[in-house]
Computed example of a mutant assay.
Amino acid sequence: MKTLLNDPPECTSNLLAMRDTLDVLGGKWKLLILHYLMTRDHQVNTFKKIQREIIGISAKMLTKELKDLEANKMVKREVLNTRPISVEYSITDYGRTSKEIIEKLVEWGNRHRHKLLNENEY
């Protein structure tokens, strides 16, 4: 990351931390997938079920995002001993650490939506 000579070290450090966060959680689908798995923690969440219930996500994109989340220890993938074979996905304890972030984003999104619909407020 390019830094300016007068940037304080903590600024650069914070920008790097923000970039790391966005690398793990950024994009259109990752937070939705994490929220989905978090709110269905005690259910069997198969690939097809997730794809069916997260409206608009393609199989290719869901595969990519689940692999990324698994690589970052946010999601666990388990092959079930069924016929035909199915795969279950669940949130990890580490993945649950994103709960506060997700809740804050939902809160902000609701306020933002309200602001846009009621332009004279705030």
Rank of each mutant, 00 (worst) to 15 (best):
N118D: 09
P84W: 11
L4C: 01
L37D: 08
Q51V: 01
D41G: 01
M38R: 12
Q43H: 12
L25I: 13
L32I: 08
R77T: 06
Y94R: 07
L32P: 00
E103N: 13
L5Y: 09
K30F: 02
K48V: 08
D93M: 07
K49C: 01
T97W: 00
C11W: 13
T12C: 05
I54S: 03
K67D: 15
R19A: 12
L5G: 08
L31H: 04
R111L: 13
T46N: 03
L25W: 04
A71H: 13
D23K: 15
R96F: 12
K76V: 05
V79E: 15
V79W: 05
V79T: 09
I85C: 04
E65Q: 10
I33R: 01
K76L: 07
K76C: 07
G27K: 06
Y94V: 05
E10K: 09
I50H: 03
L66K: 07
L15V: 10
T12M: 08
R83C: 08
P84V: 05
L69T: 04
R96P: 01
R52C: 06
I50P: 06
Y94E: 07
G95E: 09
L80M: 05
D20M: 10
E78L: 11
F47A: 02
E88W: 00
I57S: 05
I91Q: 03
G27C: 03
G27H: 04
Y36S: 01
I57E: 04
V87T: 14
V44K: 14
E10H: 10
K67N: 15
D23G: 09
E10P: 00
K73E: 15
I50S: 03
D23F: 09
R111N: 13
R40I: 05
L4D: 12
I55A: 09
H42K: 15
L32F: 02
R111E: 15
R83S: 14
M38P: 00
G27S: 05
M61I: 14
L16I: 15
D20S: 13
Y94G: 01
T39Y: 10
P9I: 08
S98P: 05
T92P: 08
K99L: 09
Q51W: 02
N110S: 02
E103L: 11
R83W: 11
N110C: 08
R113Q: 13
Q51K: 08
H114D: 15
K30W: 02
T3Q: 10
I54E: 04
L116A: 03
I55E: 15
I33F: 03
S90G: 13
K48T: 11
M18N: 10
K49E: 09
T46G: 06
